[in-house]
Structures are given as structure tokens and as C-alpha cells.
């Protein structure tokens, strides 16, 4: 059991494989490479958002505004594309990332400068950003016929047998792996969440680290905003409503500790894929959408229980340490 916990990522791979095999017995086409690639493509946006969410969670924070950020940014670029069809796509993508980053930086600033708890900040901005999407669009939809073909087709471009959307997700995964394991900023996120006081004593500015994590999460949400609108070929205010919870769930299932400081990129990706497989499989084997939600929920709670147990194991050492310290108190 202990070994299993250490190799949590392997365990998740195993569970996902078993699930896929199990679903394949009920729906023959399920385990074909083509379908699996489809599932991955379907899950790409969740993977991108989950990696941003993970960075924030590592610093002992949470970003509930990612889906609202996605909705606003998606709406903004869709409207720009509709209004100025001549705008180059690259500029629109850069704008999406930029707008997302600004919205994320607003979260980060409120957390950093005003020291408001992240859950409160992002609960507030969640509503604000959705509201802004409404104000911007006046509640109107941007439909596929208003968008330029470039705007719509870009994520679907096949490259080496897979759509560009999948490749972008893979690229972001690699990028985030480098950022979190190979940069000073990455180390600072783990330290800020693992022990904020020790991080401050080691010369790390934990507030700035959180700010950067929120900005990064926002930038990824902005990118996801463009990808979402283009993939589903429609932009409206309620796009991706409630999707922030899926990103948190992917992190939790993937073993990212809600208390901060623990988790890996592989975990977050596998957590997202786990959800992706369930979401794709349940309709295939004929389970109603309502049961799907319940089943997803059960899986999330199970993952949290599992995590809590793993963390308690680690906690015992601290308690023993405290026992020794109280001696001289």
C-alpha cells in the first residue's frame, strides 16, 4: 500500500487502463487507438486548465475563476474575429493568452496585495468575469457562421495523425513540466505551499509566487478560452459553466494536495484523463447524463478520501516532532 501511494501516478495509469478495458467489453470500439485519441483530444482543454489550477493549488491557493475567465476570453476573441475578420489568428491567440493573463493577474494582485483568501477572491471574480462576458456580448451568441474559417479550423488541423488541439495540450504539458520542475519559480510554488513560513525564511516571496501562479493559470485559461470557442464553434455567456470544478477535481484525483506543496504534472494530467475517460465512456455504455454526474462526484469524493489518508500518513512525523518540542515549552 505504501509503495502504491508512492507511485500514485502508476496507480492512476493502471486504474485508467482497467477502466478502458472494462468499457471495451461493453462497447467494442472503445479501446481502439482512434477512439482513445478522440478522448485525449476531448480532454485537452481540461488538461490545460488543470495544469494552471495545479500551479495555483501548489501554492496553497485555489482558482475558481478559470471557467469564467475562459468564457470571457473566448467571447472576447470570438467577437473580435467576427468584427474584424482580417485579424491574423496568431494575434487573436496572443490576445486570448494576454487577456487571460490579465484576468489572472487581477486575482493574483488581490491575493498578494490585499491578502484576501484566494477562495473568496476567485469566487468573486468568477461572477465578475462571467458578468463581464455578458456585458461585452449583451447576452448575444457568436455563432460558427460569424467566425472565420481559420479561427474555427486551427485546433482541428491534423498534424501527424492528431488534431493540433491535442498537440497543443502535449506542448503545454511539457512546458508546465519544465516550469514546475526546472525553474526557480516552480520550486518556489512547491516551497510556498509545502511550508509558507520556511519559504519566507528562505528568501522566497510567497505573495509574488502566488501572483505569478494566478497569472499563469489565467493565461492558460485564456488560451483555453480560444480553444473552447473554436472547438465548439460557438461563444455564449454560459460557456464552460461549472468547469472550474472539473479542473479542481482533476487535480484532486491526480494527487495534488489541496493543502499545497504536493503534486506532479503527470498526476494532474492523469487526473484529467481519468475524468475524460469516464465522461466519454458513460454515454457509450448507456448511462444517463444525470447518473454520470453522480458517478463523477463519487469518484471525486473517493479520490479525496484516498488523498486524505495518504496525507495523514505524512502528518504523523510532524506530530512526533511537535511532541518533542513541547518539552521545552
Amino acid at each position: 500500500m505504501k509503495k502504491l501511494l508512492k507511485h500514485r501516478e502508476l496507480l492512476l495509469v493502471g486504474i485508467i487502463a482497467i477502466m478502458v478495458a472494462g468499457f471495451a467489453t461493453r462497447a467494442p470500439g472503445f479501446a481502439t487507438p482512434g477512439n482513445l485519441a478522440n478522448i485525449f483530444n476531448d480532454t485537452s482543454i481540461l488538461i490545460i486548465l488543470a495544469l494552471g489550477q495545479m500551479t495555483v493549488i501548489l501554492t496553497k491557493s485555489i482558482d475558481l475563476s478559470v471557467a469564467a475567465n475562459l468564457a470571457f476570453t473566448g467571447m472576447a476573441v470570438a467577437m473580435m474575429d467576427a468584427a474584424y475578420p482580417g485579424m491574423p489568428l496568431a494575434l487573436l491567440v496572443i490576445l486570448a493568452v494576454g487577456i487571460g493573463a490579465v484576468l489572472g493577474a487581477i486575482n493574483g494582485t488581490l491575493v498578494w496585495w490585499l491578502r484576501i483568501p484566494p477562495i473568496v477572491v476567485t469566487l468573486g471574480t468568477l461572477t465578475i468575469y462571467r458578468g463581464m462576458a455578458f456585458v461585452l456580448s449583451g447576452g448575444a451568441w457568436v455563432n460558427s457562421h460569424q467566425m472565420t474559417p481559420d479561427f474555427l479550423n486551427f485546433p482541428r488541423l491534423p498534424v501527424l495523425g492528431m488534431p493540433l488541439l491535442s498537440w497543443m495540450a502535449i506542448g503545454i504539458v511539457l512546458l508546465m513540466w519544465v516550469v514546475l520542475t526546472r525553474t526557480q519559480f516552480g520550486r518556489a510554488t512547491y516551497a510556498s505551499g509545502g511550508n509558507p513560513t520556511a519559504a519566507v525564511y528562505a528568501g522566497i516571496d510567497t505573495g509574488r509566487t502566488k501572483f505569478l501562479a494566478f497569472t499563469l493559470s489565467g493565461a492558460l485559461a485564456g488560451l483555453a478560452g480560444y480553444l473552447w470557442v473554436s472547438r465548439y464553434a460557438v461563444a455564449y455567456v454560459d460557456v464552460a459553466a461549472g468547469f472550474e470544478l472539473d479542473t479542481v477535481a482533476a487535480c484532486v484525483i491526480g494527487g495534488i494536495s489541496i493543502a499545497g506543496g504536493i503534486g506532479s504534472v503527470a498526476g494532474a494530467v492523469l487526473g484529467a484523463l481519468f475524468l475524460g475517460v469516464i465522461k466519454n465512456a458513460l454515454p457509450v455504455i448507456g448511462i444517463s447524463p444525470f447518473a454520470q454526474m453522480a458517478i463523477s462526484g463519487i469518484v471525486i469524493v473517493a479520490a479525496v478520501v484516498f488523498n486524505a489518508r495518504a496525507e495523514r500518513r505524512a502528518g504523523r512525523i510532524i506530530l512526533r516532532d511537535r511532541g518533542a518540542k513541547e518539552v521545552s515549552a
Binding site: 512547491y190 511550508n195 519559504a199 528562505a202 522566497i204 494536495s257 512525523i317 511537535r322
Partner: peptide, 18 residues
Amino acid sequence: GRHGLALPMSIFQNMSLP
């Protein structure tokens, strides 16, 4: 415990932090 170390992080990561 409280000020010195990030317990989930490895020995070398803790040592190199500052």
C-alpha cells in the same frame, strides 16, 4: 518544523532553497 523545512520536499530541495 514550522519555520525551517518544507516536509514534503526532498532533502536536497530543502537544502538548496535559499
